[in-house]
Amino acid sequence: MIHTPHPHTPQQRAPSGARAVVVDAPGRHRIVSGPRPEPGPEEVRVAVHAAGICGSDHELYEGTRPRSHVRYPVTPGHEWSGTVDAVGEGVDARLVGRRVVAEGFRACLRCVRCREGATTLCLRGYDETGFTQPGAFADVLVLPARLLHPLPDGADLTAAALLEPAAVAAAAVLAAGVRPGDRVAVVGAGTLGVLAVQLLAAFSPGELLAVDPRRTRGELALDAGASRARTPDEVARERGAFDAVLETAGAPGTAGDACRLARPGGCVVLAGALGDGAEGLDPLRLVLGQLTVRSVFGAPSAAWSYAVRAFTEGQLAPRALVTQEYPLDRFGEALERVRDDPAAGKVLLRP
């Protein structure tokens, strides 16, 4: 039987020390302890409240993530929330005690792409918290202060741990350019899909369909604001019916499914993390249908600001997606739960 700690009773940690999960190589991890790291100039140290586990963390552990997008040994954890407990030189001391989340991409802010606002396309190359830089599967995290997004006093930090996937969902919604009255479909009702549904519902679409083979996930999407929830088989006859389609599942055939749902001249946004074996798009369908296809990998600063604002204003409520919480030293068990339990929602590690 899996023990789920009470959300308000995190394990005690020694103020003078800090633990972290370290993945030395695919399939090998350990829990290390040492002094609490000190923030350098323009950096902050954050006491981690909670950190979410997602499919890309599993890829990191199994060694299936592209080698250019991981650097071993590494402490994973790119979905997190916490409280600033120390600041380095050049950082406003008033940040201490603030509840925060932060962007993961370490963009240079100087190249052409960054100056356009496309910080996830930084020409310096890929560099992200939890993959190439130490992440939040730890008691504390040190990172550049410029990446922070402060939250209001009293913000629900357990819910806020899902603001990273919410920012990715926000990037997809912004890319889709949805207008009030549009017919919109979301393919996939996992964490990313349900968060996208919540954001899309605020645009007052004419229809908001969630597509997922799991009935329980469809019910979550309905609670999030979808007007209908259907399985892929049930929408087979609805081809060419939607102004905008967001693909969030990353399953082998879902990119093609999304394109088939889009109307002629419609927009398709691919946001799911497609792995090996993903089926290609049909170029004839794209050309004859004059579809606009966009893709999303991570979230630029504008999408983060949008997601944090929606969370602050109550338009984004991710707490219901959290289904299990594990202490840090049970990282391996938590990772297995994400991998082996199709019914698992968002699993959090709690230092």
Rank of each mutant, 00 (worst) to 15 (best):
G63D: 10
H58C: 12
A320C: 02
P165M: 06
H6E: 14
S33N: 09
A185D: 00
Y326W: 15
A273S: 09
P73C: 11
V338Q: 09
L208D: 07
P264F: 02
G345W: 04
G181Q: 03
D156N: 09
G154Y: 10
V168M: 05
H78N: 01
E116I: 00
A50E: 05
P318N: 04
G90T: 06
R113C: 10
S16C: 02
F105R: 07
V338A: 12
F331S: 00
P150S: 05
Y72H: 08
A159R: 03
P7L: 05
S301Q: 11
V268I: 02
S227K: 02
C108I: 09
R36F: 03
A18D: 07
V338H: 13
L321D: 14
A317Q: 11
V91E: 01
R65H: 14
T120N: 13
P342L: 05
A302P: 05
G17W: 04
V44S: 03
D243M: 04
H78G: 01
G190T: 08
T323G: 13
D24C: 00
T292K: 11
R263F: 04
R337I: 02
A102C: 05
G82L: 15
T9D: 15
G27H: 11
E238V: 04
D139W: 12
R330T: 10
G88K: 00
A201R: 15
L222E: 11
L199Q: 13
D282A: 11
L141E: 12
A161Y: 06
R263W: 07
L349G: 10
L316Y: 08
V142C: 12
S81G: 10
H149W: 08
P35C: 06
R350D: 05
R339E: 13
P26E: 13
V84D: 01
A303Q: 13
E59P: 00
G277W: 09
L288N: 07
P66C: 12
M1E: 10
L192Y: 12
P66N: 07
A262E: 09
P152G: 11
P39R: 05
R99E: 10
L163K: 06
P15W: 03
L148E: 13
G117I: 03
S301R: 14
F311T: 00
A175K: 08
L200A: 00
R285C: 09
D212E: 05
E89F: 10
L163P: 02
C54A: 12
P76R: 04
G88N: 06
Y126L: 13
Q290S: 15
G135S: 04
V268W: 02
D24H: 12
D153R: 13
T64W: 08
P180W: 07
T75L: 12
A189V: 10
V21F: 02
S81M: 11
E116Q: 13
D282G: 07
Q12R: 14
V173A: 11
A226C: 09
P41W: 01
P180S: 14
A159F: 05
A310W: 00
H3Y: 12
L121Y: 05
A273Y: 08
V269I: 03
G181V: 10
P66R: 05
A224G: 08
V46W: 00
A169D: 09
G298H: 04
S56Q: 06
H69G: 04
Y126K: 02
A310I: 03
